[in-house]
């Protein structure tokens, strides 16, 4: 059920894997925001080109991209059905009540390309950064520890709880549970309630065990910050590219 975790350390041989996370994270976030700012169609090829180069640098296989596009892709599909036919006044082609509109088609093109470009960069970012490292980096960048602790612990238990849940489903099936449907809503509510109760009970024990080992006394050590020149060069490249895109969008 859950296998989307960072392809991570396996790819750490790539340029992207080695890029110091404390510089990679802000660099790429600035970049995707500059992507999202684009409204001018003429900038779209640049977006696609730069995201492809970035994806190349991450040395991830193409399949990694395809396997992850399904969920958000569904949303995009819905937009593709709505926008060209309902958005705008300039009618390109009419068939009965159905009218293909220019403005809608332009919006769809813009949205699709921006989505694909950002998607590639985000996959490159997350698939080369294991979550524990990402969390510590966020902490080092000043994100409140309550959030980063919450993130780390949730991540730690997701795998266990998913397999708990799977075993509960199996057990229910063996006692004749017909599978998830509207009719079996009550059983599902019971299963969900049981999962919450068990998580709650386990949380008490986890908390006790953590307290015994000194949780809450002082901060955890942050990862060492030892950037090399290449790290800064990559950051500079990302920032320059972002600035170029923003300026082009404003002045062209």
């Amino acid at each position: 059920m859950i296998n989307g975790a960072a392809v991570g350390s396996a790819e750490s041989g790539s340029l992207f894997g080695r890029w110091e996370t404390r510089l990679k994270l802000p660099g790429l976030i600035i970049l995707v925001f500059s992507f999202s700012l684009v409204q001018d169609l003429r900038l779209l090829p640049l977006l696609l080109l730069s995201s492809m180069i970035i994806y190349r640098l991450s040395a991830l296989p193409f399949t990694c991209l395809v396997s992850r596009v399904r969920l958000p892709g569904f949303f995009l599909l819905a937009m593709a059905v709505i926008l060209p036919f309902w958005s705008g006044q300039t009618i390109l082609w009419q068939f009965g009540p159905l009218a293909l509109r220019l403005e809608g088609c332009i919006s769809l093109l813009l949205i699709t390309v921006k989505f694909i470009a950002i998607f590639m960069v985000v996959v490159a970012l997350f698939a080369t950064t294991p979550l524990p490292l990402l969390t510590r980096t966020m902490r080092a960048l000043g994100i409140p520890w309550l959030l980063t602790d919450l993130l780390l612990f949730s991540y730690r238990y997701i795998f266990q709880l998913s397999s708990d849940l799977r075993r509960t489903h199996t057990a229910a099936h063996l006692r004749g549970f017909k599978g998830i449907s509207l009719i079996s809503l009550k059983t599902m509510a019971n299963v969900t309630g049981s999962l919450l109760v068990r998580s709650h009970q386990q949380a008490e024990r986890v908390f006790q065990a953590m307290t015994l080992r000194g949780y809450g006394n002082g901060d955890q050590a942050l990862p060492e910050f030892r950037p090399v020149v290449a790290d800064y060069l990559l950051l500079a490249a990302a920032v320059l590219l972002s600035a170029a895109i923003v300026l082009a969008q404003i002045f062209i």
């Binding site: 057990a171 006692r175 004749g176 309630g193 049981s194």
Partner: peptide, 28 residues
Amino acid sequence: VGMIFQHTADQLICPSVREDIAFGLQNM
């Protein structure tokens, strides 16, 4: 065929013991 799991807690889903025993019987 009935099976008792190693992790018993995986098997208990209803809010009371009575309902939990009834679960399989109702499905039958």
